[in-house]
Nucleic acid binder design. Structure first.
Lengths: 157, 157
DNA sequence: TTGTTAATGAAAGCCATTTTCATTAAGGAG
DNA sequence: CTCCTTAATGAAAATGGCTTTCATTAACAA
């Protein structure tokens, strides 16, 4: 077994077990699919990919697993306003780097951008600090997202 | 009939008719409720308020009217991630002033804040410009929102 | 006043997600 | 390695916000 793969498994197995969750084939499969896809998969996307690749993991389990993985902090749940949740590997040593999303409201294409991120993050950090103090809130997250029409959708109209 | 009220009515009646929509009792009632409530009402909230105040407007009509009012730009549709849309009077001469939202993920309380707004708006504007150019997008909107636990929910745990 | 057509409401439908419940299997104890 | 406790799973049913359908009503222009 290749060293890299082994270490990767160790990593998420430890994280799951450390949080009191069991390591199962379904969880492994879902995590594997997320790590090999370019983000933004819906539960059904994952369901289809899992069934295409090999075998049986019910939709229910996919939803439950995604909850677990969110809980553990390995996966981020995204909302692009189209009525279904999307999931991507959370940023971190194993995941992608920090980015925000630009969503086409016509074709639902999503662009991850990292430009301007530094300024955004800096402003968000300051604002969070200010809001926490002023409103006595413990801030745990934020959403910053842009919506619009991509080139194709803009012209096709 | 008081002058203020008359002018207020004129205003939205004109706006509706100018966009080819008819003026109906239901639309008047919904708009009135929105203007007298402190923001963030769900369709069902409005439904209950309408039935408490006087009479019959079906939930279907409320959804349809809110769509119309969004279309005309009189109402903003909000998404706080709890699975139901919220609506508030759009900012403008008749509506509230520009603000963003701070959401408690435990009790769903929402705080409108205007602090830090100038900087946020400025950054958003610049980022939009950059993204439009780089990704050839026509940006039509954005979401910036903070999530966390309010004082009460933080302690009650 | 009348005619056209948008607006309405009740009921049915839609669909992502959740719940229920009986079955299976992870992983610690022995 | 085997047992045992309990989490994990899947199928099916349920949930719930929202939308569609369709027959009826009412805006408002002529």
């Amino acid at each position: 077994m290749p060293r890299g793969k082994c270490c990767g498994q160790r990593w998420w197995q430890g994280k799951l077990q450390g949080c009191g969750y069991r390591v199962t084939a379904g969880r492994e499969a879902i995590l594997d699919i997320l790590s090999k896809s370019a983000g933004h998969l819906s539960a059904e996307d994952i369901y289809l990919k899992i069934h295409a690749r090999d075998a049986n993991v019910g939709l229910t389990t996919i939803y439950r697993t995604l909850d677990v993985l969110s809980d553990v902090g390995m996966v981020s749940k995204l909302d692009f306003g189209d009525g279904r949740a999307r999931y991507e590997l959370a940023e971190g040593p194993q995941g992608a780097r920090h980015h925000h999303h630009l969503v086409c409201t016509a074709c639902n294409k999503v662009i991850d951008y990292t430009d301007f991120i530094e300024e955004e993050v800096e402003l968000l950090k300051q604002t969070e600090k200010g809001l926490e103090k002023k409103y006595d809130f413990h801030i745990t997250g934020h959403v910053i997202q842009f919506y619009g029409l991509c080139r194709a959708c803009s012209e096709g109209k």
